[in-house]
Amino acid sequence: MSNSNHTQAAQDRYFMMLAIEQAKQGLYTTRPNPAVGCVIVQAGMVVGQGFHPKAGQPHAEVFALKDAGAQAVGATAYVTLEPCSHTGRTPPCALGLIEAGVQRVVIAGLDPNPQVAGRGVQLLEQAGIDVTVGVLTEQAEALNRGFLKAMRTQMPYVRLKIATSLDGRTAMATGESKWITSVAAREDVQKLRALSGAIITGSETIVTDDPQLNVRSTQLGVPAEQVPTPKVVVLDRRQRLAHNAQSEYQLCRRADTLYWRKDDLAELLRHLVSEHQCYDVLVEAGASVAGSFLCQQLVDELIVYQAPCLLGAAAQPMVNFHPLSLSEQLRFKVSSHEQLGPDLKLTLYPL
């Protein structure tokens, strides 16, 4: 690579990182749309920037172009996801970039949405705009794992969250579990909920804990009321629960709670994508539900909050599954580990 090409590549990475930082500002509010950021650069200087804040509102490119004004002419636009080419609730962003007179567009990754899927790039190139694709793709895609997976496979991205003791226990034999982990760990769970289009739990968790499973954090960077409320799904094969405005359980009083009474969890996940546009799913449930999702290989990411305590052999296990030999064990790759207050947070991916 020549020095000039090397310099250009370094500049592209730098400005794309700025666009990714823009995209992060919409991380909790854009569902079901992806979080997207855009930066407009003229003569090595940022002259415009923006992000997509909410479904139905203008996309990142629109805000960035408005910010740049006349300085967009001849500029380079850095976008974290391929500009849309179709008219939905907002006009096509690819046409907006063309009309603004930008000279070059740098894109982190293509949009697998069938309505876009390369057509945005095609429109730009047909207009004589120089297009570069594939700058910081992995970092940009990490912001929209659910959207991208759903567009590619019609299945959501599933995160399984478990709070456990050092000896792998999640509750006492009586069901008592509040609280094993610290305030800091529970606050982090709020971020997982805020990322999620749906939260899946089991009827046993409803009966035992009567949880709210809502987003109520004041530390998200945006007011909790601006975060789309995750859809709650209750696995209730035994039909123990039902919607009742006078129910003793909070979630059963919510008219939009979905009760799933079939055995097929994969069918449920497909249903959440096709019927409810839930692309990121969080499983917050007991050992049996956790075991079912893991054994059926439906978990994309396992998040374990481990408290520095011991609950003993009679306490409830973190996962119910019964391998007969080591060859049947479930193994994971540790992606990251961090300390939250006194607790350890492990993020793992199935091998």
Rank of each mutant, 00 (worst) to 15 (best):
S4A: 13
A9C: 03
A9P: 00
R13K: 14
K24V: 00
L27P: 00
Y28D: 07
R31Y: 07
N33R: 13
V39H: 08
V39M: 08
P58M: 10
E61H: 06
F63L: 12
L65E: 03
L65G: 02
A70C: 05
A72C: 06
A77V: 03
V79N: 10
T80R: 05
T80V: 04
P83D: 11
A94P: 02
G101D: 09
G101L: 05
V102L: 01
V105F: 04
P114F: 08
L123V: 07
I129H: 03
G134C: 09
V135T: 07
E141W: 09
I162G: 02
D167Q: 05
R169C: 04
A171G: 13
S177M: 07
A184R: 12
A185K: 02
R186M: 12
A194V: 11
A198L: 06
I200V: 15
S203Q: 06
S203P: 00
Q212N: 09
V227G: 11
P228V: 10
P230M: 09
V232L: 10
R238N: 03
Q250S: 10
C252I: 01
Y259R: 02
L272V: 06
L272F: 03
V273F: 03
S274K: 12
H276T: 01
S288L: 12
E301Y: 00
L310W: 08
L310M: 12
M318Y: 12
M318C: 09
S335Q: 14
S336D: 12
H337N: 09
D343W: 10
T347G: 00
